[in-house]
Amino acid sequence: MWDAPGIVGLPDDREEPRVIEFDAVHKEYPDGTVAVERFSLIVPSHRVVALVGSSGSGKTTLLRMVNRMVDPSSGTVSIDGVDVRSMDRVKLRRSIGYVLQAGGLLPHRSVADNVATVPVLEGRSRRQARADALGLLERVGLDTALADRYPAQLSGGQQQRVGVARALAADPNILLMDEPFGAVDPIVRDQLQAEMRALQADIGKTIVFVTHDIGEAFALGDEVVVLRTGAEIAQQGAPAEILANPADDFVASFVGAGTAQRTLRIRQVDGRDVVVDGDGRPTGVLER
């Protein structure tokens, strides 16, 4: 299934390192608001890093620094050691996939044309790009019959899938996702997260995504970075580490550790181990 055109043909890309490094980036707006205060982080190649925090934590600003939608006031963002400020904005953006909340689709273009956006901007023929787009639609679990519809004619979940397909169309090595599944209902969100994990297992991109939903961060991130106001790192680590050892009260309350929802116990029912949450409500069965 993964021989969708447009993605195959550059098999070596996956072996290339794609490390994103934030080095003491600082962002202050003209009105004096400090969005990001001296933030440093290394995003390792082929890994998924989740930046999680509430609004005002500067997480989206950080994400936008990578493709130069926002330039830091000081400090540098580099990709494989090259400062992004030395790269052309437009070319840089075309080389990085970007998924926005609700897909961020262009409402006046059909689904296939949306997916084909970047390849066409890069000079590929529209017909070829559209043909490739059909493969990508299948890849993200969409019926190719939707190709000629307009975004407003799709459900929220479908739009989100198109958004992912568009981000993958130019076969970027890096994927940025801004609250990628924030606009859909919980059931669809769970499904999309599961598919995203399977997709990532296949394509192994370097992915940075931001979310305010700690559950989503744990579901998708290889590594999770919990942010306070001004993008101050409260804790950083694998999901299990953060759950097991929250660094402080802020992180503990953010991840909900110790609250009813996160604390699970095992209770014997009819000879099986039933897992219950802090309120004693069953959430599943334990398999040994």
């Binding site: 493709n67 939608m69 437009v90 070319k91 840089l92 953006r93 075309r94 080389s95 970007y98 926005l100 909340q101 609700a102 897909g103 961020g104 689709l105 262009l106 409402p107 956006t117 970047v118 901007l121 568009r166 940025l176």
Partner: peptide
């Protein structure tokens, strides 16, 4: 957000 998406796609 559409302008944003368009800018982000280069």
């Amino acid at each position: 957000d559409v302008r944003l998406a368009a800018a982000a796609t280069g």
